[in-house]
């Protein structure tokens, strides 16, 4: 059975339909990519899954349970963690403390939480940066901190919202390695990404949405050849020109 099922979810903001009748599911241990042109509704779909928005219509099942409209903190305790497209570190707290906040989802004891946070930081190659303040980190490290905090909550499903945006090519490669390593450890991952090279390399399957609607789903190679996808990205006249 799939870990996450999104069933016919529609999200309206007033008259604007940001996500329209979207259905998808993610199997355990899978990496699913979600792509689409700017404003296609990717982040809105994500926010519905993560509990930030309650979908206007449709249902979201996580681990077999209907979690539609549940609050982010409850979803987090159930094993659903996310990162934010615009990183949101706690600026006055050290890197280690930032991650410790996440680790408190698993334990109530400070020492255990700190140990766990340290472990996660090492896993992401940030072991030496525990005492730094987020403001002193590079953008690549801030993105990693974002992932570290989410990982510390011990999620079953990790939602990554454009964790590679703004990174240099070598850093993108490092991030791909990190995400692959997480999958090796049995994590299920749902990725939004704009960097095609990365999403093609990572995803088992890709869902493409355009104007809030799913226009294609398939293996990366299939998606890359799909006519609708090419049109959505490059315009109607691309084929004829």
């Amino acid at each position: 059975m799939s870990l996450l099922q999104v069933q016919e979810v529609t999200m309206r903001f007033g008259g604007l339909i940001a996500v329209n009748d979207l259905s998808l599911e993610i199997g355990r241990g899978q990496i699913l990519g979600l792509i689409g042109p700017n404003g296609a509704g990717k982040s809105t779909a994500f926010n519905c899954v993560a509990g930030l928005y309650k979908p206007t219509e449709g249902r979201i099942l996580f681990d077999g349970e209907d979690v539609t409209g549940q609050k982010p903190w409850d979803l987090c305790k159930k094993g659903l963690a996310r990162t934010f497209q615009i990183v949101k570190p706690f600026q006055s707290m050290t890197v280690l403390d930032n991650v410790t906040v996440g680790a408190f989802a698993v334990t109530d004891h400070r020492d255990e939480a700190r140990d766990r946070a340290m472990e996660v930081l090492r896993l992401l190659g940030m072991g030496g940066k525990g005492r730094a303040l987020p403001g002193s980190l590079t953008i690549a490290d801030r993105k990693r901190l974002e992932i570290a905090r989410a990982l510390a909550t011990d999620p079953k499903l990790l939602l990554l919202d454009e964790v590679m945006a703004g990174l240099r090519p070598t850093e993108v490669d490092e991030m791909i390695d990190i995400i692959r390593a997480l999958r090796e450890r049995g994590m299920t991952i749902f990725v939004i990404e704009h960097i095609m090279r990365a999403i093609m390399a990572l995803s088992d399957e890709i869902v493409v949405i355009h104007f809030g609607q799913k226009i294609c789903r398939g293996k990366p190679e299939q998606v890359a050849r799909d006519e609708n996808v090419i049109k959505a990205y490059l315009g109607e006249n691309y084929g004829t020109a």
Binding site: L52, P72, C76, A81, F84, F90, V101, A150, A152
Partner: peptide, 8 residues
């Protein structure tokens, strides 16, 4: 927002 996403 970030705190809520981390279970707070």
């Amino acid at each position: 927002d970030a705190a809520q996403a981390l279970g707070v």
